[in-house]
């Protein structure tokens, strides 16, 4: 195996310890609630800042390797900053047979990023999800929590345009 030697430069995110304390408090400072703690951190920062994880390690007394393993195992988490708008393309079977793959391609082309990546201006992150449970409306995408159904290439691009116009 190979690792990065020394301490690489990463963006230092100023962390809100009051927020983290509150999150830990609500989750009873229980390592069993780790996944939900990470979700709450992700909800605030859109990703998992390293400083926040260090803080959790300190407070919960769990090894960082466990947190890191969980953060890389579950799809809900990202260790790099994500965009203001997180686009999730549903690749469930119902959406797949109705052409979700093509929608994903056209969004990749439009935003000039691949699945899992974020645009340089930190506006959009493109992700895929195994099923959003809106199968009757397939193909479906969500932008943050809002769902858009019955899409084709053109309609999907229009949805994105709507967000591009927003500041």
């Amino acid at each position: 195996m190979t690792t990065i030697k020394g301490e690489p430069q990463v963006k230092q995110e100023p962390i809100d310890t009051a927020y983290l304390d509150n999150v830990l408090e609500q989750n009873m400072q229980d390592p069993e609630n780790l996944i939900m703690i990470l979700q709450d951190i992700s909800a605030k920062y859109n990703y998992l800042p390293r400083e926040a994880l260090n803080y959790v390690v300190e407070r919960l007394n769990v090894p960082m390797s466990l947190i890191y393993s969980a953060a890389t195992f579950y799809k809900a988490f990202s260790l790099t900053p994500r965009g203001k708008y997180i686009i999730n393309v549903c690749l469930g079977t119902a959406c797949h047979v109705r052409g979700a793959g093509k929608i994903k391609e056209s969004l990749e082309e439009r935003l000039n990023i691949h699945e899992g990546e974020t645009t340089e201006d930190l506006k959009f992150t493109l992700e895929t999800v195994r099923c959003l449970g809106c199968c009757a409306l397939g193909p479906v995408i969500t932008v943050n929590e809002k769902a858009y159904g019955g899409l084709d290439r053109g309609k999907a691009l229009k949805v994105i345009e709507q967000y591009e116009r927003e500041a």
Binding site: E32, I35, M36, Q39, A70, K75, F77
Partner: peptide, 26 residues
């Protein structure tokens, strides 16, 4: 309520319980 972290395999009972325990859902 325990919210999952997005892993299909966590529908499997043993993985789900590991996940409930705050671990990786293997």
């Amino acid at each position: 309520i325990s919210r999952g972290g997005g892993a299909f395999v966590c529908g499997e009972s043993t993985a789900l319980m590991r996940s409930l325990e705050g671990k990786v859902g293997r």
